[in-house]
Design a protein around this nucleic acid. Structure first.
Length: 426
RNA sequence: GGAGAGGUGGCAGAGCGGUUGAAUGCACUGGUCUUGAAAACCAGCAAGGGGUCAAACCCUUCGAGGGUUCGAAUCCCUCCCUCUCCGCCA
């Protein structure tokens, strides 16, 4: 959510910033609605003031034993007038709230302009794209000989699910272990086990709701809980409604969770293999920081995700998402794109965002600023460190051998009892 | 699932339907005292919105939402959550 004061005070600059995303904000209509809200609010306040004052004097009169009947007659229709004013206010406020919740975050000035992912800006590359003495296969061809089983998954769940057997499942698990160990032991993140089902309020806090409900799976029944699309939701919502001590910041949380996404609107995209699934595993990184430190923290957090790809010896590049591709809650985002020889292109494996105070304002996450003594909004960041399914895909494709086996990076071997490669007949 | 208890400020914990946004304690901040610290004493200390140069001042908030009333932390209803016991269960 954007600062309502910013909207009131400088709506033109907000509108032009949002326009970079392709979002059109009708400034005049907004200001009109806001001024309607203000006058409705004022009306309610006045009536309440009158009621409070009069009620108080009735109390005093009664205490002193005076006749209160005339006073009571005096306030006879106050309640009715107040009720009407409240109804008016509520209807304006509801419209305004809906508008507020539907507006994306303000972009940082460093975000490049662009319409879609083709206009993202490459920041740096790491690693050499492997050169094969044979035609490299994609992860499906490699994986199916190693225990990747889409047929079984389709039988029980349909498309966009996968099932792993044997050593392949073990490698998938090892990747997660490696990621968690690096992030907790080397980068100071606190490992957290979180709920996988969350309420609508939490999803509103991080920005998935109300606008992106179609992307979520919701459970049937009265509770109507949603399955988390990312651990960012539970991890960030830990600080919802809290006032944090300055000394406790920055907070760094990590969690391994499954992620569930309906992938509505992506029909026909990435239908092959386990690139785009309804369910995948991810190790997530979240930081809660003081506002002045958030952009520094974004660089750092991106680096924390990069370490994983380097340990896995996977060539990648870092791109700054352009204005048309960046997510709803983010002010700035770096994607890590890993090289996939099977597709001969870089594919997203991590997305690291500074959400500034956008989520904090929605969930009222604050810290007490010692300089002002007042509670102020924190800044929140999140990033994948990294997606496990895609990491597995990248390992298979980048480290494949001509005989169909796959070399395992040395960093992973301790998690696999010293196993050095995956072989088709094992 | 059944029975009971309870949800109040950063924390603990009072609160006959009427100057209660809320006693008290702890924590915190400032001051006095001290060479310094501690102790003691004095003072301050919830959040959000509006208002103001800044104040004053006004409105809202005692788990959430409804209701009764001139007036609700206090009474009624619904829901949520926590705790204790029983049942069931990984």
């Amino acid at each position: 959510m954007l600062d309502p004061r910013l909207l009131r005070g400088d709506i033109d600059s907000v509108a032009s910033n949002l326009l970079r995303r392709g979002v059109r904000l009708d400034s005049a209509a907004y200001l009109k609605l806001d001024s309607r809200r203000k006058s409705a609010q004022k009306k309610v306040d006045e009536l309440r003031n009158e009621r409070n004052t009069r009620s108080k004097s009735i109390g005093q009169a009664k205490a002193s034993g005076a006749d209160i009947q005339p006073l009571l007659d005096d306030v006879s229709n106050l309640g009715e007038r107040l009720q009407k004013a409240k109804t008016d206010l509520e209807s304006v406020q509801t419209q305004l709230d809906e508008l507020h919740l539907g507006l994306p975050n303000i972009l940082n000035e460093s975000v490049p302009d662009g319409l879609d992912e083709t206009e993202n800006a490459e920041i740096r590359r790491w690693g050499e794209q492997p050169v094969f003495g044979f035609k490299p296969n994609d992860h499906v061809e490699i994986g199916e000989r190693l225990g990747m089983d889409f047929a079984s998954a389709a039988k029980m769940s349909g498309s966009r699910f996968s099932l792993l057997h044997g050593e392949l499942a073990r490698v998938h698990r090892a990747l997660i272990q490696l990621m968690l160990d690096v992030q907790t032991r080397q980068h100071g993140y606190r490992e957290t086990y979180v709920p996988y089902l969350v309420n609508a309020k939490s999803l509103t806090g991080t920005g998935q709701l109300p606008k992106f409900e179609d992307d979520l799976f919701q459970t049937a029944g009265e509770s109507g809980l949603y399955m988390i699309p990312t651990a960012e939701v539970p991890l960030t919502n830990m600080v919802a409604g809290e006032i944090l001590d300055a000394g406790d910041l920055p907070l760094r949380f990590t969690a391994h969770t499954p992620c569930f996404r309906s992938e509505a609107g992506s029909y026909g995209r990435d239908t092959r293999g386990m690139i785009r699934q309804h369910q995948f595993e991810k190790v997530e990184l979240v930081q809660i920081v003081k506002p002045e430190q958030s952009y520094e923290a974004l660089e750092e957090l991106t680096g924390h995700a990069e370490v994983i790809l380097r340990l896995l010896e996977l060539p990648y590049r870092v791109v700054a998402l352009c204005s048309g591709d960046i997510g709803f809650a983010a002010a700035k985002t770096y994607d890590l794109e890993v090289w996939l020889p099977g597709q001969e292109r870089y594919r997203e494996i991590s997305s690291c965002s500074n959400c500034t105070d956008f989520q904090a304002r929605r969930m009222l996450a604050r810290w007490r600023n010692p300089d002002t003594g007042k509670p102020e909004l924190v800044h929140t960041l999140n990033g994948s460190g990294v997606a496990a399914g895609r990491a597995l895909v990248a390992v298979l494709e980048n480290h494949q051998q001509e005989d169909g086996s796959v070399r395992l990076p040395t960093s992973l071997q301790p998690y696999l009892g010293g196993l050095t490669q995956l072989s088709p007949n094992a």
